[in-house]
Lab assay of single mutants.
Amino acid sequence: KWTITVQGEEAIKWAIKVAEARNLDYTVHIDGDQAHITIE
């Protein structure tokens, strides 16, 4: 299990796209213009 933090709307969209493309189980916690994405 690991967490990445991305900043900015484009980076958030990209990170989610990558997680979905790899069929990963993930949760997103949005904090202002940052998102913390935890991959199970």
Rank of each mutant, 00 (worst) to 15 (best):
K1H: 11
K1P: 06
K1E: 04
K1N: 10
K1T: 10
W2L: 08
W2T: 05
W2A: 04
W2Q: 03
T3P: 02
T3K: 07
T3A: 05
I4R: 02
I4E: 02
I4W: 10
I4L: 07
I4H: 02
T5E: 03
T5R: 03
T5K: 04
V6I: 11
V6C: 12
V6D: 00
V6G: 01
V6M: 04
Q7E: 10
Q7D: 05
Q7N: 07
G8R: 02
G8E: 02
G8I: 14
G8Y: 05
G8Q: 01
E9D: 10
E9Y: 10
E9Q: 11
E10C: 15
E10I: 11
E10K: 08
E10D: 11
A11K: 11
A11G: 08
A11S: 07
I12P: 03
I12A: 02
K13T: 04
K13V: 06
K13S: 06
K13W: 08
W14L: 13
A15N: 00
A15K: 01
I16W: 02
I16F: 02
K17V: 08
K17T: 10
K17M: 13
V18E: 13
V18D: 05
A19L: 15
A19K: 02
A19N: 01
E20A: 08
E20S: 10
E20C: 15
E20N: 11
A21R: 06
A21V: 05
A21S: 11
R22C: 15
R22I: 14
R22Y: 15
N23P: 05
N23V: 03
L24N: 03
L24K: 04
L24E: 03
D25H: 15
D25V: 14
Y26T: 01
Y26P: 00
T27N: 05
T27Q: 08
T27I: 08
V28Y: 04
V28D: 00
V28T: 02
H29D: 08
H29Y: 13
D31H: 11
G32S: 04
G32T: 04
G32L: 06
G32N: 05
G32I: 06
D33Y: 06
D33N: 11
D33R: 07
D33P: 06
D33S: 09
Q34T: 14
Q34N: 09
Q34H: 12
Q34S: 10
A35E: 01
A35Y: 12
A35T: 07
A35W: 11
H36A: 07
H36W: 14
H36G: 03
I37F: 12
I37P: 00
I37G: 00
I37V: 05
T38S: 06
T38M: 06
T38H: 08
I39R: 01
I39K: 00
I39T: 02
E40P: 04
E40G: 11
